[in-house]
Amino acid sequence: MTLSLPNLGLGIGWRAQLAHAILNRPDIGFVEILAEDYFLSETIPPPLQALHDRGVHIIPHGVGLNLGGAEPIDPARLAALGELAQRMQAPFVSEHIAFVRAAGLETGHLLPIPRTHAMLDILVKNIRQAEAALPVPLVLENIAILFDWPNAEMDEAAFLNAICERTDALLLLDLENIYANARNLGGDPVALLDRLPLERVAYVHVAGGYEADGVFHDTHAHPLHEEVVALVEALYARMAVPGVMLERDDRFPDDAELGTELDAIAAAIARGNIERHERGFAHPVLSDAS
């Protein structure tokens, strides 16, 4: 598969509360919108239209496809996601490697799936169904989990590699989720980066969280952790991926604080780029998107 991904640059999750701060950052190259919020409207809200007119990419990000569910994907949801992608002229749409409902019950939460060959077969079938129905490429995100399934046959890197081998899906690498999982369940985030097919990464999520009762919660409501910013640098030292975006969903900071976090991400990208060029042939760059 030949990949030709748009250069996205610095991005942020679109939230009405952040509209002012986002419009005032001319270096924002892309925003992500919560796909389900726009399924049943027929227009683009004016502030998003203004960003779109400026050339900012708008990426619909779904939470309800249930790609990791044992049942086939609901065609009505796929159609709605595809129509939204076309309305927003999106380069791709993203979803999660997770399940959100079963037995007719909605959880409103991204839940882990077993990393087994049987689950992989189901997931691949669902991804292919989605890819066949969508007008743009599908990008898949790794989730944060507080508990895991028993009897895993693969670790997360092997599972993600297997998905990429068997489908055309791209990756939305959530570095905050990788960091959170390493804290809660063990593992080395940088070692994981070394084993992932980084040339398939379409973009990256970073966010903040906090620890309570010995558990790290991926809240998207707290300041970014230095360790997560360091992972952005470590990633770019290995590969220039198309873009990185900040997710902030609650306890919204003022424009200055948000700006500081975006600046920190941009600086980490710049440091990573320098490291990669200094390393030269030690880490050959296969598709430099910058």
């Binding site: 399940f99 079963a102 839940l111 799936i113």
Partner: peptide, 9 residues
């Protein structure tokens, strides 16, 4: 898998 997902939910 379907049964365990249902039990978990």
């Amino acid at each position: 898998i379907s049964d365990t997902q249902a039990d978990l939910v």
